[in-house]
């Protein structure tokens, strides 16, 4: 029996210690408050128990309003402190640091599939370097899952219709368990994996091993395979939006709204092109749903990203 559970007490990531500070404060508050309540309750129960010689008190407590104001006011202040504390950590956890190393994860019943930008792919194992922030972009190809690494104190649901992100920066090399924490069917409890954190040098030599086919390059091959160029290039007979500088730019929709072309929007335009149509274009593109895998969509997006990123904010990375 090995004690990974106990070892996770150390600050494994840059955020795990921050979360644990709040945790221990809340533990302290819980023990103090429930201890006080239970002590008073039992103390009164014994002190004022009915017994021979016990005098019945007829004293009416005055100023109940003041007393109640205290036990509304004090908890309110404490609660607001916890609220801001928790919200601050939430912002940090949800805000992916600029320049994070991107990893792409496709979850399915019942496995985790990872792609590295340089082309390495793995299942239920995720090799990462320590000391740099890692961004994991998540998508499910069936039901909702949740990517949970207890040692990192972070998790994020994996949705079947849009990308979600989480990030972490690991300090210590080691192996850390990945759990699926959203019930996903028969083998939910076996949908486990592990993060293998290694030094940057080790990671680079690991990435270099085997054949290298960067995601963007595979994306370019897919674009040729699926015939996307027939329309999506300048001078095409069928007017279509072009890919250069698309990612992260503003898109004016046919219904008058303006959105940012993030990964979720590009993915949706591939599987359900008519849903949020770009203004000024006809809805002529066929759906590629069920013809193209989630891994391939990620490769297409990697290619589109490689064509240049608009200076505008990409919403899925910059939330909030």
């Amino acid at each position: 029996m090995h004690h990974e559970a106990i070892r996770i007490a150390g600050p494994v990531t840059t955020m795990s210690g921050v979360v644990d500070q709040l945790y221990w404060f809340l533990v302290f508050l819980t023990v103090l408050t429930s201890g006080l309540i239970i002590f008073l309750m039992l103390f009164f129960a014994v002190k004022y128990r009915r017994r021979p010689g016990h005098e019945v008190s007829h004293v009416v407590i005055e100023k109940t309003g003041l007393i109640e104001a205290i036990w509304i006011g004090v908890p309110l202040i404490v609660f607001l402190v916890i609220f801001f504390w928790g919200a601050k950590i939430y912002f940090q956890q949800m805000q992916v640091p600029a320049g994070a190393l991107p990893i792409y994860c496709v979850a399915k019943q019942w496995m985790w599939k990872f792609q590295h930008p340089e082309g390495k792919r793995e299942i239920n194992e995720l090799h990462i370097p320590i000391g740099v922030p890692i961004q994991v972009t998540l998508i499910s190809q069936d039901v909702i899952h949740s990517f949970f690494v207890p040692a990192f104190r972070t998790k994020m649901d994996v949705l079947p219709n849009r990308y979600t992100n989480l990030w972490f920066q690991v300090n210590q090399p080691g192996e850390y368990k990945i759990f699926c924490s959203e019930y996903c069917g028969l083998w939910h409890s076996l949908m486990q994996g592990k993060v293998i954190a290694m030094t940057l040098d080790e990671y680079e030599s690991w990435v270099d091993r085997g054949k290298k086919e960067p995601m963007a390059l595979k994306g370019e091959q897919l674009i040729a395979k699926y015939g996307c160029w027939q329309c999506h290039q300048r001078g095409s007979t069928i007017a279509s939006p072009i890919f250069d500088g698309l990612y992260g730019g503003k898109v004016h929709l046919s219904d008058g709204r303006t959105i940012v072309a993030d990964e979720t929007y590009i993915r949706e335009s591939i599987v359900d092109p008519g849903r949020r149509l770009v203004a000024g274009y006809a809805n002529v593109m066929p759906t590629f749903k069920d013809q193209i895998s989630e891994e391939e969509i990620l490769q297409l997006i990697a290619f589109i990203k490689s064509l240049g990123v608009s200076p505008g904010p990409a919403s899925s990375e910059k939330t909030p």
């Binding site: 809340l26 916890i82 609220f83 504390w85 950590i89 939430y90 104190r153 998790k155 959203e182």
Partner: peptide, 21 residues
Amino acid sequence: TIGGLTGLFLAALGMDIHVQD
């Protein structure tokens, strides 16, 4: 009281990320 106080862990956003589910 214990049930309610442990609810504060779940209401606190940054803490809930870890203990949710």
